[in-house]
């Protein structure tokens, strides 16, 4: 049975692309446009992995990640963070640092935009093993 991956991104194009990529590689997909919807979908769809965009309206990826990790129901779902920010560009948006400072379990992988397809798929493969 194909593994189900939840793609959370506010950009419809990004969602289309990632879903096409994942489906082409044998994964089942479901989508959400912001953190709030992402949490709902996580609860309802119970995905095997979440591909999470960092910056979104309503509820950012960071907020959603924190909630995921707080909730015992969802805290074990692997997360791949997809972000348009390199840490050098905007230091205050350094998610890695933010995670380390708060002693929260880090996500399984960080993927920077533009998404390198091979790296993205390999990271997901690793995270699901």
């Amino acid at each position: 049975m194909a593994k189900k991956i939840l793609v959370v991104d506010d950009e419809p194009d990004m969602v289309t692309f990632l879903c096409a990529l994942l489906e082409d590689n044998g994964y089942a997909t479901c989508t959400a446009v912001d953190g709030e919807e992402g949490m709902e979908r996580t609860k309802s769809e119970k995905p095997d992995l979440i591909s999470l965009d960092l910056l979104m309206p309503n509820k950012t990826g960071i907020k959603m990640y924190r909630e995921l990790k707080k909730d015992p129901e969802t805290k074990d779902i692997p997360v791949i963070m997809v972000t348009g920010f390199a840490k050098d560009d905007v230091p205050q948006m350094d998610f890695k640092k933010w995670i380390h400072e708060r002693a929260i379990k880090p996500p399984e992988a960080y993927i920077e935009k533009p998404v390198n397809k091979e790296v993205y798929l390999e990271s997901i493969k690793q995270a699901l093993m």
Binding site: M14, A20, G84
Partner: peptide, 21 residues
Amino acid sequence: IAGMSHDVKNILSGLEGGVYV
């Protein structure tokens, strides 16, 4: 500039994604 580069990256991602799709 950071935002713009993000924009450009987003556009590039979009383009790349579009091409892939």
